[in-house]
């Protein structure tokens, strides 16, 4: 039987991807960011998943304003790194897991979450930067990846509670898949940042730290936080943090924190990163 063994959250800042691609990770500006992922890469090498269910958001790449799915699950065998305007990132193609993805789609839709099924989609930095942070620069990604795109560009994104409950449905779906697979769920984006308007550059470290505390300890209550609080406290783009609740919903109520990292800044953004394991 397939099972979810761990959850990872991480920011997915494009400049972090550029730093990796241009071999600048040891530059003085970037070294402290990447130091926070040293544990993670060693841990990942020791605990390799078969499949990563990767929750991220598309940034006007695969989805324009023509189609805006709230939740989209990638059911294809392959996903190409997208050309976001300056050529695709020099990273390996992403290999999907169509059997598991279709199984999850069917199971989750029958649990009343109306997913959009995607058979062709290029994946942008939202998906590939977390892979680079956790796996470095291999010639092929060491596992299959199911891309799961959440709309956080067009207001309103799904509520925190909707995301949290969806995470639970995803867990049930994974656990009803017959093949013996080690599945990790990653929630990406955040933490506090605002990229637009005169308030750009907003960072709220106290909010971010509290968000991580509550995500670990009291996710049910955290899931009730209204969307406007994310935007007011963590910046208009800080709303991406709702995606972390999908990850959390897919884990057990109690979790063990294996790793926690926080750093300001990476470009315009606060970097947050957690590795959580189901408490057994």
């Amino acid at each position: 039987m397939a099972r979810i063994t761990a959850g990872v959250t991480t920011s997915h800042i494009p400049a972090v991807g550029a730093a990796i691609d241009q071999y600048k990770t040891q530059a003085p500006y970037w070294a402290p960011v990447f130091k926070g992922y040293e544990f993670s890469r060693a841990w990942m090498a020791a605990n390799p998943p078969d499949v990563v269910f990767l929750v991220y958001n598309d940034h006007a790449t695969a989805f324009s304003l023509d189609l805006i799915p709230t939740f989209a699950i990638g059911c294809a065998d392959h996903f190409a790194p997208a050309d976001e305007g300056w050529g695709p990132r020099p990273v390996p193609p992403v290999e999907g897991h169509a059997d598991l993805a279709w199984h999850i789609a069917q199971s989750v839709i029958q649990s009343d979450f109306d997913l959009t099924i995607v058979n062709r989609m290029d994946v942008d930095h939202g998906l590939t930067v977390p892979l680079s942070l956790m796996f470095g620069q291999p010639s092929a990604w060491p596992c299959r990846v199911i891309p799961f795109a959440v709309n956080v560009v067009q207001y309103p994104p799904p509520s925190g509670n909707r995301c949290y409950q969806l995470g639970k449905a995803i867990r049930r779906a994974v656990e009803s898949f017959d093949e013996d697979l080690n599945v990790q769920i990653w929630g990406t984006g955040g933490m506090s940042h605002q990229l637009q308007g005169p308030r750009a550059g907003l960072i709220n470290a106290a909010f971010d730290q509290r968000f991580m505390d509550r995500l670990i300890e009291e996710p049910e209550a955290l899931a009730q936080m209204p969307l406007v609080d994310y935007m007011r406290e963590a910046g208009s783009e800080g709303i991406e943090l709702v995606m972390w609740l999908i990850m959390r919903g897919a884990l057990t109520p109690q979790v063990k924190t294996l790793h926690r990292f926080y750093h300001v800044p990476a470009s315009n953004t606060a970097v947050g990163h957690l590795i959580l394991e189901n408490a057994t």
Binding site: Q194, P198, G201, L202, I203, N204, N268
Partner: peptide, 24 residues
């Protein structure tokens, strides 16, 4: 682009970010 929207120079903006960003 972010610096431009805040009316700061890119250097000023980058310094603000290094110092912890814009306070809420």
């Amino acid at each position: 682009a972010a610096a431009l929207m805040t009316g700061m120079s890119q250097e000023e903006y980058a310094r603000m970010m290094l110092e912890g960003g814009r306070s809420p």
